[in-house]
């Protein structure tokens, strides 16, 4: 039985990165930047986020000072849900994991941003 949460809240740090990415004009909105962060974490840092245990641990690390997003906006076609179920079949907290992956990925992208290596964005896709 999947969790019944209706929103997710990003960490303050991740939110700041999403905002900067959005401000660059490359993303249509912060939410797209956030999902980009999630995909980046899965694609390039799978070893760090490949188990539910690791994600549960990280969930406790990130604060909740960032923006709140509706699940309906985040995942209108349940793609993210299906992805989480495929990646973490033993878990029943797909959106919690989604939040963790977003925060993790955005933090990593934030490092690139600081070093001036985030753009052109196609190099990190």
């Amino acid at each position: 039985m999947a969790e019944s949460i209706k929103t997710i809240v990003l960490s303050g740090q991740a939110q700041a990165v999403a905002k900067q990415m959005n401000d660059s004009g490359t993303f249509p909105d912060s939410l797209s930047a956030a999902k980009f962060g999630m995909a980046y974490a899965i694609k390039y840092y799978w070893d760090a986020v490949n188990t539910s245990d690791k994600l549960n641990h990280l969930n406790g690390v990130y604060d909740s000072k960032g923006s709140t997003y509706n699940i309906g906006s985040l995942d209108p076609d349940n793609y993210v849900l299906q992805l989480m179920e495929a990646l973490y079949p033993d878990s029943d907290t797909p959106y919690t994991f989604t939040r963790v992956l977003i925060c993790f990925g955005l933090n990593k992208l934030g490092d690139l941003l600081e070093e001036g290596r985030l753009f052109p964005i196609n190099k990190v896709m």
């Binding site: 490359t26 993303f27 249509p28 797209s32 980009f36 995909a39 899965i42 694609k43 799978w46």
Partner: peptide, 24 residues
């Protein structure tokens, strides 16, 4: 061009997951 980039970036994250999905 910026507008086209933004359009593509809206769902670019899905494309990034294709290799992961294939491995899975």
């Amino acid at each position: 061009v910026q507008s086209k980039i933004r359009d593509l970036m809206k769902n670019a994250w899905r494309g990034m997951l294709l290799t992961t999905v294939r491995d899975l």
